[in-house]
Write a protein that binds this DNA or RNA. Structure first.
Lengths: 341, 341
DNA sequence: TCTATGTCTTAACGCGCGTAAAGTTTTTAT
DNA sequence: ATAAAAACTTTACGCGCGTTAAGACATAGA
């Protein structure tokens, strides 16, 4: 097995001219079946692969796709990233995954580095409130970008995410239908714009149903939501600051902390008789099934959000970075009934 | 602000010759302070960055570092990846993160793609039992690689991980000291070699202490450990297959499932009087603090494992891919006492 | 001031591949 | 069978930068 240095050499060994071989690697269907067969035959014998740097230097558009999520230690994003990666690979692209780890500077650095990779496109789930709008806007002007999960008004060629109103209305209506209307438990200054939309949806739904909204805001910064939810819940529960016997958490990770606090304080959570509190939430986090009790929550339509995100990006790429208009696609939630409410 | 096309142009604008500018980007300290100042001054005015593809084509060694983990949806790996990424950036490298998502084919594909990136080095946490040994061996022959988290005998230039014996001996000794010696709860065919070492350590420690080991093996494949632990625990607990009032789970994710099952069955877990079962585990998963009850576990020395991994890789890179001999570094665990045992 | 050393400039080649033009061969259609 | 179309080969240039060699220049030490 000889080591092949470059395409010239491989072309010679396969008995095909280099430009034709080059054409083959760009699109195997663009050459005659007989020559394709000859190339692929040689390919098996010699195991040659074009130098990606030389290739990418000479193509104005690479086959790279950047995937950026705000916080990869959150399994929600890890899962969605997995789906996105696989979709990209299936479509013949090379996905590169980055996490902003909750930091603006890192998000900016990632976009910076991404730009010099000349990616065909980028799937970006921005940090949200703490994102550097100007930096992202500048990036989007140069690179075809689809925003997902959390929207930044007007940025990117399109946005694909979940319909926060659908989440909250389903959970609130369910809890109201089966018991007392819930209070809303959230962070005081949420990092994510979805959180704000959920609060607004909560207020709207409560008012529509003729109930007075109760919002419990807990302190805490960053992405350690479980910790924040736990600490906040301990405080609220110990101070008896809870006006209702049912609570809707803004998201599952806060709820995980909330439930842990309830457990520690001996508060029975659930919908059975011996329980004094019902807790529901939003997201259907991968771990929501294993909380104690298991968490009733509104599930993201993972598949559709991820699927539509990549579809939109591919469309964008084929249209050379321009879409007719910026679309915002929102998928509704699916209520998942478990034991906590 | 003019758009700069290439180094030639930037060199002209900065009043320095291109070769010198090239030298500067390779190592800013390799040029005279005055010229360095002139370049950096121009750099601020014109915002130019070398084309990474052209750069990487002409350097035999890039500044890229591959980070490969077996399953990114596990926050443990997400956390360690974060640390590794940051260390690489701090050292002036460009980390690229990949997850094998529990699949051998994907692991192989990732290594394949990585190889054509000509990375300076790779930090690889292999899938373990289902890894393609031959493929990894071939890869390691060409690319400076440090294995971490799970060891494959003889592969890679070095291994850095945790000392499974230390984990298990601490948890077993603690449980034995404070109550009944534990049974060991694990998957029948664990994906990870660490699991086998933990079982062996359990048996060894139990025998040393003069107790008979009890091993509970539950069925299940893949990386959905919580699910597997939950289902397995339900079965064991319902069938009253538990011989002891204390259980040591092979890892935290199994324990999360185990605790959920206990909760559902009304079994009180903990070390207080009204509890009938104690559960401990290994890893100190990011969520272990929020289980119900919170999980007593042996913590990885994250910082040291990650830190030593990158240190070793950098050393390896500086030695041009060769180390004197393959070292295996194991860091001991730290027992974290919480409420479950 | 002069020399030795270090740093810079100029000129030029190479990396591996994309791509275009012109000519040749093969395939398809009539 | 023949003409038209399609695919191929040859030749050659360009991409942006690494790198080298020769010579010009600047800096430091005496």
């Amino acid at each position: 097995m000889t080591k092949i240095k470059n395409m010239e050499e491989f072309a010679a060994l396969s008995g095909i001219s280099r430009p034709t071989v080059s054409k083959y690697f760009h699109d195997p269907d663009s050459v005659r079946p007989t020559t394709r067969a000859r190339i692929e035959e040689a390919l098996e014998r010699f195991d040659y692969r074009p130098n990606i740097y030389a290739v990418n230097q000479n193509r104005k558009l690479t086959k790279n796709i950047g995937i950026v999520v705000p916080y990869l230690a959150d399994p929600f994003f890890a899962e969605i990233a997995r789906y996105l990666e696989q979709s990209c690979i299936a479509a013949g692209y090379r996905p590169f995954l980055f996490s902003s780890h909750g930091e603006q500077k890192l998000e900016n650095d990632i976009l910076d580095g991404l730009q010099s990779m000349k990616p065909a496109g980028v799937l970006l789930a921005p940090l949200g409130r703490i994102s550097d709008r100007a930096a992202i806007e500048k990036f989007c002007a140069d690179v075809p970008t689809v925003l997902f999960d959390s929207n930044l008004d007007g940025l990117g060629a399109a946005f694909v995410g979940s319909d926060n109103f659908s989440f909250v209305s389903q959970t609130v209506e369910y809890m109201t239908r089966t018991g007392e209307p819930p209070s809303f438990f959230e962070m005081r200054t949420p990092a994510n714009p979805n959180a704000n939309r959920r609060r607004k949806a909560y207020v709207a739904v409560m008012e529509r149903l003729g109930f007075e909204p109760h919002i419990i805001k807990v302190d805490g910064k960053g992405w350690a939501f479980e910790e924040i939810g736990h600490r906040g819940a301990m405080k609220v529960l110990e101070e008896r600051g809870l006006k209702t016997d049912s609570v809707l958490c803004s998201n599952d990770r806060l709820a995980i902390g909330f439930l842990a606090a309830c457990f520690e304080l001996g508060i029975r959570v659930g919908r059975t008789d011996e329980c004094t509190l019902r807790v529901a939430s939003n997201d259907d986090h991968p771990f929501a099934k294993f909380t104690c009790p298991s968490l009733t929550t509104a599930a993201h339509d993972y598949d559709n959000v991820a699927g539509r995100s990549v579809e939109t990006l591919f469309e964008l790429i084929e249209n050379e970075g321009k879409l007719n208009s910026r679309t915002e696609t929102l998928f509704p939630a699916r209520l998942v009934l478990r034991d906590s409410a």
